[in-house]
Design a protein around this nucleic acid. Structure first.
Length: 213
DNA sequence: ACCGGGATGGCCT
DNA sequence: GGCCATCCCGGTT
């Protein structure tokens, strides 16, 4: 018997904890993204922690700006950024307020509303690729800067709702260096994923862009 | 598995 | 002014 996922929304207190506690605890939880067409549900399988303090990899490392403003606000809200001229990625702000820590949502399994996600991810060959990678995840869920600052501790029917889902035990969690983070040298093993999950994105070390010829 | 190209905003000098 | 970015994709080996 497999217990049905718990559809109780996560409270703000859940996010008002140190980011290294929250990040692994998010694995197996369910993000509901309610779009115009209908709800899409994503079971989180891979995340990364970013701490606003003494973390050169964090967008908040050099202080508060218009772009990262939401990270400095209350926990449980969504920080969306735009990168590489093409992509959006989404984070969940953690506590305490003002510390500017956040969890990057790197991958997940679409458990509901895949028909809506497929329309945004036409290049995906299989459903397990729909949200395999942070920009793919944001694309599948129709997330852009317009949703920056949205509360994820909101009732179902709101743009975002985090549900308790089915947390995974410590034996199912693995961790390692963060992906694509410059200036980190892999010193922070702050990437967390569910062992052997097919939706987890492959590890890529950071490679500096070469100038266009 | 491993490349290279794509594209633009943010932030530092 | 100029670098580089919490990356993806398609082609090739």
């Amino acid at each position: 018997m497999i217990a049905a996922p718990d559809r109780t929304p996560l409270t703000r207190e859940f996010f008002d904890r140190p980011v290294l506690e929250v990040a692994p605890d998010l694995l197996g939880r369910i993000l509901v993204r309610t779009t115009q067409e209908g709800p899409i549900e994503l079971r989180l399988t891979e995340v990364e922690a970013y701490d606003g303090q003494n973390d050169p990899g964090s967008h908040a490392y050099r202080g508060r700006t218009a772009r990262n403003d939401v990270m400095f606000g209350p926990p449980g809200h969504v920080y969306v950024y735009f990168t590489y001229g093409m992509w959006h990625c989404m984070n969940l702000v953690c506590g305490p307020e003002g510390r500017a820590s956040a969890v990057l949502l790197r991958a997940g399994e679409i458990t509901e509303g895949a028909e809506f996600a497929r329309k945004r991810r036409l290049s995906a060959q299989q459903d397990k690729e729909l949200a395999k990678g942070p920009a793919r995840l944001a694309t599948a869920l129709g997330v852009d800067r317009a949703l920056d600052g949205t509360d994820a501790c909101a009732p179902e029917g709101s743009p975002f709702t985090m549900l308790a889902g089915t947390p995974v035990g410590p034996d199912q969690v693995r961790n390692g260096p963060r992906t694509g983070v410059s200036g980190d040298g892999g010193v922070h093993p702050w990437r967390f994923w569910i062992v052997n999950d097919p939706t987890v994105s492959p590890y890529r070390a950071h490679t500096p862009r070469r100038r266009r010829t």
